[in-house]
Amino acid sequence: MPLRPGRCYRRLKRPYTRTEYIAGAPYVQIPKFELGNTSPKERARFDFVVELVNEEVGQIRMNALEAARQMAYKYLSKYVGDPNFYLKINVYPFHVIRENKMLAMAGADRLQQGMRLAFGVPTNRAARVLRVGTPIMYVEIEGKNLNHAKEALKRAASKLPLPTRIVIKPLRQVTKVSAE
């Protein structure tokens, strides 16, 4: 059965996260949350952090997160190279999405009402973003590749259901000591 559109799950409902009590909860299908140059010693040379932050509160399904991760990683590895960036997904899909499956044929809207407030079957997972300005994913990169990082996150944002914006921050604040 095909996936329902993302607009069906964008709004927040009661959290459903205790997977030890959920029979048949789907596994998280995001293979890696950290990509690129993951060595802390080699990441010390990166100057900037480019963050993709949300502008609304909502949920992001796990397949949307995976699609955004793939878009950003493919662009950065092609144009910048794996040793020259560090990409991290900052949210985790804890929330289990349930679906009350209804008949989907001609005339089913008149014939089947279904149970009122039915509990449903676990079908997917979603990351809940509860504060505006939460970084969904971020890239640590050198200053010369800053435009590539912005483009990669712009492409990743097109896969997400929430409106987002890109924020650039210096990784370290360089303090100059004045000789007085």
Rank of each mutant, 00 (worst) to 15 (best):
Y73L: 12
K144P: 01
F46R: 04
G114L: 07
F85R: 02
V129P: 10
A72K: 06
R128N: 06
A72I: 06
R116Q: 14
G81K: 07
D82Y: 05
T164C: 15
V49K: 04
E51I: 01
R98Q: 04
L160R: 10
N145T: 00
N90I: 00
V129D: 08
L87A: 11
Q70K: 03
Y92E: 07
R98D: 08
M62W: 06
L162E: 12
K74W: 01
A104T: 04
A64V: 03
N90V: 02
L76I: 10
K169Q: 15
Y92M: 06
A68R: 11
Y75D: 13
I166G: 12
E55T: 12
N54V: 08
V129A: 08
L111R: 02
R125T: 13
Q59S: 14
F119S: 08
P170I: 11
Q112G: 03
N124V: 00
G81R: 12
V121Y: 13
N84P: 05
Y138F: 02
T134D: 08
Q59G: 11
P83E: 15
V167D: 06
R155V: 02
M62H: 12
T134R: 02
K154G: 06
I136N: 02
I97K: 00
N84G: 08
V132W: 03
T134E: 04
V129Y: 04
A152Q: 05
N84Q: 15
E140G: 01
T164S: 10
E66D: 13
R125L: 14
G58M: 07
L117W: 10
L65V: 10
E66W: 06
E66T: 03
I141N: 04
F119L: 10
D109P: 01
V129K: 02
K159E: 13
V96F: 05
V167Y: 02
R125K: 14
E151L: 09
R98A: 11
N84C: 13
A156V: 02
R98K: 10
K78N: 07
P122V: 06
Q70H: 00
V132R: 13
G81W: 10
A106T: 10
A126M: 04
R69L: 15
E56G: 01
M105S: 03
I136F: 09
A127M: 11
I166D: 09
Y75V: 04
G133A: 05
K88P: 01
T134L: 07
V53E: 10
M71N: 09
F46T: 03
I97Y: 01
